[in-house]
Amino acid sequence: MAIRASLLEQIYTVVAQVPAGRVTTYGRIAGMTEGATARLVGTAMRQLPAGHALPWHRVINATRRVADHGGASEQQRLLREEGVVFDGAGRVPARLLWPD
């Protein structure tokens, strides 16, 4: 799926703002752009080039869980290193969602 460069820039600008120790969802990011959908945000995260500095690991799904993908264990590890906790069902507490 091809994503307009301007929309990618909007998505990546929002992701760059998510503070350490907090998470946001694909849908929340989409809502802060001009036309992205949650699925499009997920696609944008998968298209990040190697060596990028974006905190991709701070983007989770609407159920407040890490999406099931090849980098899920790495994502959980990075989030835990930032102090993000998960409950017994693998959900992040709502109080850690950004923006408030």
Rank of each mutant, 00 (worst) to 15 (best):
Q17F: 09
I60L: 05
E81R: 14
I3E: 11
I29A: 01
G90V: 05
A30G: 10
R39I: 11
V84F: 02
A89D: 15
T63F: 14
I29V: 06
L8M: 13
Q76M: 12
R4C: 03
A20F: 02
T43W: 07
L78M: 08
G90A: 11
R28K: 15
R22V: 05
T43P: 00
M32R: 12
W56L: 08
Q76Y: 03
A62L: 08
M45C: 09
V18S: 01
R46V: 09
A94W: 08
G31Y: 03
G70K: 15
P55A: 07
A72F: 02
E82F: 06
R46W: 09
L97A: 11
P99A: 06
R58V: 03
R46S: 14
S6L: 05
S73N: 13
L78N: 06
H69S: 11
T37F: 05
G42Q: 01
H52I: 04
R91M: 04
R65H: 08
T37V: 04
G51Q: 08
R46Q: 14
L7W: 06
T63S: 15
H69R: 15
R65N: 06
G35H: 02
Q10E: 10
P93L: 07
G27H: 05
P99T: 09
T25I: 04
G83Y: 12
E82C: 04
M1I: 11
L79W: 01
D100L: 14
A53C: 11
G71L: 12
G42S: 03
T24V: 04
R95I: 11
T33P: 01
S73G: 08
R77L: 07
S6E: 14
R22K: 14
L8I: 05
R64D: 10
G21Q: 03
M32Q: 10
Q75S: 14
G90S: 08
M32A: 06
R95P: 02
G51V: 13
R58H: 00
Q10G: 03
R80E: 09
A50Q: 12
M45L: 14
L7S: 07
P55N: 05
G70I: 09
I11Q: 00
E9I: 07
R28A: 00
V84E: 08
D87L: 02
R22Y: 12
L54N: 01
W56Q: 14
G21V: 01
R80I: 05
Q10T: 03
E34G: 13
A94T: 11
G51F: 04
L97V: 15
Q47P: 00
A67K: 11
E74F: 08
E74Q: 13
V85L: 07
R64G: 09
R64H: 14
Q47D: 14
V41P: 01
G71C: 12
V41F: 03
A36Q: 00
R28F: 07
V84H: 02
A53K: 13
G83W: 11
T33W: 06
F86K: 12
G83R: 07
G70Q: 13
L97D: 13
L97G: 02
R28P: 07
A5S: 14
E34S: 15
